[in-house]
Structure formats: C-alpha cells, structure tokens
C-alpha cells in the first residue's frame, strides 16, 4: 500500500503527542466580485482563472500546483477532505468553479470559491500556530501581487461571513485529549474556553463530532486584534489545555494504572483481531491505543502515527486504497484488515 500521507501527519513538532496539528487559514476576497454563493457562471470562471494565474506565477520554490475540482474524481476530493487539506464544504456537490492549490508536502492549500474567493491555509505538525501564520502571511503577500483584495481600513479584509471579518484569520489546533474525556473534565474545560472566545469543534470542523477524542480548537474573534495576538492567544490557551491533559494522564497512571492497562489492552486486542470495524469504533480504539503508548502501557512503538492511523479509518481513503467503490459493510471489513495488518507490521 502506498499510504499517501501528508507531511504534517508524521508526528513531529512540539507537543506532538497531544497536539496533532496546527492550522492557520486566511479568508480573502477579490474587490468588486460577488462572494461565491452569489456568483454567476462568468464571474465564477473568471475568478477561478485569475487565481490559477496567480498560483502559476508563484516561484517554483513553493511547489504549489493548481487543480480544478471539476477535473478531480469525487473520491480524490473526499480524500483531500479527510486529510484536512480542504473543507467538507469545498468538496460538496454540485462542483462548479471550485479549485484548490496544494504543495507537494500537503502543508499548503489554497481553496478557491469555497465560502470566500480564497481560503489560504497552512497546516503544520504539533503546536506551531505562530509558524503556520508566518508561512500563511508570506503566501498571502505573494498572491496579493496578482489579486486585488477586498478590504477596508476600518473593517480589514471583507469576508462573506461577518464572523471572519478583519484579519480573515482562523487559527486552530487539533488536539487528542483522551485523559480529559476519561476524567470528565473536558466539558468544563470547553465551557471555560467558550467564555474566552475560543471555539471547540470535532474532527472535521463545524458540526462534526469529537470522534476519537480529537478536538479542534480555534479563535472565534477575527477583528480588533492583530494576527500575532490571535495566534499567540491561541497558543497560550493550547499550552494550558496540554498541561491539563498531561496532569490528567499522570492522575490516570498513578491512580488507575490497572484499569487503564486493561482498557488499552482490550482495545489493542480488538484492533489487532477484529474482522469488522466501523469507523467510529476504530477511532475510539485507536484513541485508547495511542493513550496506551503515551502512558507507556504499550511498550512497542506504533509503526504509524496517530494521524496516519486515523486517516486509515476514513471511508474515502479506504476506497482509494482499494481502488474501487466500497459499500459500508465492505469498508468495515477492509478497515479492520488494514488496521490489523498495519498495526502488526504484516502489510
């Protein structure tokens, strides 16, 4: 199997045992052109063309390639979504004038005609929100040489949703917080975060569930603070959550080691023996196994990182690997086989 993982999934970067990835997204629009939901065909086509030219004019060092979503197979689009390179919204039907520019490492993605004309995104492993902002900032400067952005001195960058107004920035991190969930502290932590203008979402963003104890945490406010302040604030908050998760893990290890070892061992047993696994169950078990490795209850290091294993449970990724469409029950069988053989190093 050629796994086709993104570089950010390699599990490097600060605090990468808990912080799976850091992401900065900038919403940008072109002056005088209706937002994507209001565009006619001509406007959509011209916008897509102008971003394509801007991307093609970038220096080769960026290694960014432009694709029209119409030219991509539905499965390929879905896999990009499962890899967090594009939003669920971008790959929804009907596809008209959407595009995406990706770099080879799958760290950069520029979505075209999603909710805004452009959504410039940088994804890095571990806790690197500031670094992601620096890259996104440079990328934005390069694109701006070719595109006339809509902005206003008072309101900043003008976006389709007033919730993104100003910096147009959403900085977010993906966190694995099993110990906070097990010790029932998660909801209290998230309530506090909401009061601080920090939003908590599930694995695939808005409206998705926190499967596998994976949470996305991002800034809600985008106006009135500088980008540096926004990423710094998020970074500080994340460090505190990481601290809470670590002490919850310590607590589990010193007060409930046997119970945890039992739980982790059972999950490992199912993952390496089951013949049918739904994606929800697989994520839940993987979360346990990952915690087991982090707590030292599983001594062998896993042959794949947690983000890589998570991707292996996703429906479209499995179908891509199988090279054909699979029914839900076929997927459950292939998912079980894929995880079993990869975890046991038998592939």
């Amino acid at each position: 199997m050629n796994p086709g993982f993104s570089e950010w999934m390699e599990g490097t970067g600060p605090e990468s045992d808990i912080v799976l990835s850091s992401r900065v997204r900038l919403a940008r629009n072109v002056k005088g052109v209706p937002f994507p939901h209001r565009m006619n065909d001509e406007q959509g086509r011209r916008l897509l063309d102008s971003v394509e030219s801007a991307v093609n004019a970038m220096e080769p060092g960026w290694q960014v390639h432009f694709r029209r979503l119409q030219d991509m197979a539905p499965l390929e689009r879905q896999v990009l979504m499962e890899k967090h390179m594009v939003s669920p919204l971008l790959v929804q039907n009907p596809i008209r004038y959407e595009g995406v520019a990706l770099d080879q490492r799958e760290s950069i993605s520029i979505m075209v005609n999603e909710e805004d004309h452009l959504r410039v995104q940088v994804l890095l492993p571990g806790l690197q929100v500031e670094q992601a902002w620096q890259v996104a900032n440079k990328l934005d400067d390069v694109l701006e040489q070719h595109l006339d952005y809509a902005y206003d001195e008072t309101s900043g960058y003008l976006t389709a949703w007033p919730t993104n107004l100003g910096t147009g920035m959403r900085a977010s991190v993906m966190l694995h917080l099993p110990a906070l969930v097990i010790t029932r502290q998660a909801s209290q932590v998230f309530t506090t975060l909401a009061q601080l203008g920090i939003v908590v979402r599930g694995l695939y963003g808005e409206g998705s569930e926190a499967l596998g104890n994976i949470f996305q945490i991002s800034n809600q406010v985008s106006l009135g603070l500088t980008e540096d302040e926004l990423v710094h604030n998020l970074s500080v908050v994340v460090q505190q959550i990481v601290g809470r998760e670590r002490s919850a893990r310590e607590h589990l290890k010193s007060n409930a080691e046997l119970v945890m070892a039992d739980r982790v061992g059972r999950s490992w047993g199912i993952l390496t023996n089951a013949r049918i696994l739904t994606s929800d169950e697989a994520l839940r078990l993987l979360s346990d196994v990952k915690l087991g490795v982090d707590l030292g209850l599983i001594e062998e290091p896993l042959p794949y990182t947690f983000p890589q294993l998570t991707l292996m449970t996703r429906p479209s990724f499995l179908q891509m690997e199988a090279g054909r469409e699979l029914s839900a029950s076929e997927r459950d069988i292939i998912r079980a086989r894929t995880l079993r053989t990869h975890l046991l190093g038998q592939h």
């Binding site: 937002f35 003008l158 007033p162 910096t167 406010v221 985008s222 106006l223 603070l225 500088t226």
Partner: peptide, 28 residues
C-alpha cells in the same frame, strides 16, 4: 459582496461589535 459592508453599515456595525467585541481592524 464586499460592498455590502458599506451598504449595510448601520445595521452591521452593532452586529460586528457583538461578534468581535470591537469594530476597528488592527491587523494586516
């Protein structure tokens, strides 16, 4: 579109204030 912000300025300003707690952009 981007010009809607200007057109609906009076109605939008209180909403923007509620959403962001501020109305003046300070970033890039």
């Amino acid at each position: 579109c981007d010009r809607c912000y200007e057109a609906f300025q009076n109605e939008l300003n209180p909403l923007i204030l509620r959403l962001h707690g501020r109305v003046q952009h300070r970033g890039k």
